[in-house]
Every structure is written in structure tokens, then in C-alpha cells.
Design a protein around this nucleic acid. Structure first.
Lengths: 106, 106
DNA sequence: GAGGATGTTCGACGTAAGTCGAACAACGGT
DNA sequence: ACCGTTGTTCGACTTACGTCGAACATCCTC
């Protein structure tokens, strides 16, 4: 099982942005950002089938946004926050801020 | 001619990100960010037809990223940098940094 | 080792998105 | 008035993407 986890600098910005430009994936990223550490794939509250969930997790991983640790039959996902913040300072923060649909209060 | 320019807070983040997650549009945004002020639609160096260019400009405008001024037969586009920076601090900067394909030097 | 749990992969399907040429609209000169 | 310039809009086409069920692979436990 080769978990394809590219170097973040090798991923075109457009791919990173495209990975974030989806509601389901954004929810995953936010869940990862909220919780402190890693998280099992199956523990996300998404209204999609597990096939779709698996697909989105793959997109995030291949965009360099997450890292996956395999432990037996379950897989733990975590945000590559440090690398992200180093390469795209502000990106994650900006994206994480707005709670999907509710306008920011300013 | 009603130029549809939504309030940035009314645009879902995913739409903003999706607008930026395209190579042609990112080139437009970078060109706008480099140059100081506004810019005529036709002055972008893109390898696409004018129909396609018009389409991309529309996507950017409707995502709240640009504003358009009509002057006779030409239209001047400018980045809504201030609003963007206020609502999504760091986003634009992060996206503008990498020069499309060339890895950042870290 | 049989069964259950956790995930992935494989078509298949529908919709959205990028692209173009051609037609159209509006303005500015000569 | 005519023509060229600048942009938009309208199908049409192709490709990419999100989604699912079903089949498969792995591991863990009894």
C-alpha cells in the first residue's frame, strides 16, 4: 500500500486550492484543524457514502494537505498544518475562519 | 448592463477558492496584483480565446474577487484587494506567492 | 478460520466546468 | 453611415468531478 503523499512544494497552488474548494473536504479540514491531533477516517460527520469519503480523503492527501498513518485496518489522518503555514502563510487560517454559510461578523 | 458584483461576505469560501483554483484565472489575478491599478480586459497575456477570457473574468467577478468599470467599449478590471485582505487575511498573499510551477525556495 | 469492521477500488452515472467559433451589441473614429 | 475594436452571449463539445453501490482487501477478535 503506497500512500501517495507528495511534497507540498511539488503540488501546484491550483491543486491545493481546488482541494479546498469543496464543501465536504472543507468540513474535513476544519474538523482536523479543530481537533488537536489526528483522527480516524471514519469519524467525520459527513453526509456521504464511505466511497465518497474515501475519495475526498484521497484528494486531500494527494494535494499535500493531509498525512495518513495506517494502523491495522483503520487510518489516521492529520493536517499538515506546519508545512502549509510555512509555504502558504495565512491560507489555512483564512479558509478555516468562515463557518460555511454564515457570514463573518465585521 | 448589470455587472453582477456580489458582496464578498455573501460568497461562500468554496466559491472564492474555486475561482482561484484555475491556472488562467490565477494568471489574471497575479497580473492584477502586480500592476498597481486597474487593467483593460484585453491586456492579459492568456492563451485562450476571447470568449474564454470573458468567461474567466466573469467567474472572478461573480466570486467577488474583482470589480469592473465600464468605459465606452472597454472594461477595466481591478482586484478587490482590500476587501479580500480584510475578510480572508493572508489568502491573496499566499496564493500570489508561488510563480506557477516553480517551487518556492525554502 | 469465520465473521465483522474499516477502508479502498472499480465501474457507472449525472452534472458542472473549460474551451471554442460564431453571432451579437456598443462604442469610436474617419 | 460604415467599419474596426472591444467584449459578451450562445450553443456545442469534451473533459473533469462528485456521487454511489458493489466488490474487494486487511486486519482483529472469538
Amino acid at each position: 500500500m503506497e500512500l501517495h503523499e507528495p511534497e507540498l512544494r511539488d503540488v501546484p497552488v491550483t491543486a491545493v486550492l481546488a482541494a479546498l474548494a469543496d464543501d465536504v473536504r472543507l468540513r474535513i479540514v476544519r474538523a482536523l484543524a479543530d481537533g488537536a491531533g489526528e483522527r480516524a477516517c471514519g469519524t467525520f460527520e459527513l453526509d456521504v457514502s464511505k466511497a465518497t469519503r474515501s475519495h475526498h480523503l484521497k484528494v486531500l492527501r494527494e494535494a499535500g494537505l493531509t498525512r495518513t498513518r495506517v494502523a491495522g485496518t483503520t487510518r489516521y489522518v492529520r493536517l499538515r498544518r506546519d508545512e502549509l503555514d510555512r509555504l502558504y502563510p495565512g491560507l489555512l487560517n483564512a479558509v478555516l475562519a468562515e463557518p460555511t454559510g454564515a457570514p463573518a461578523d465585521l
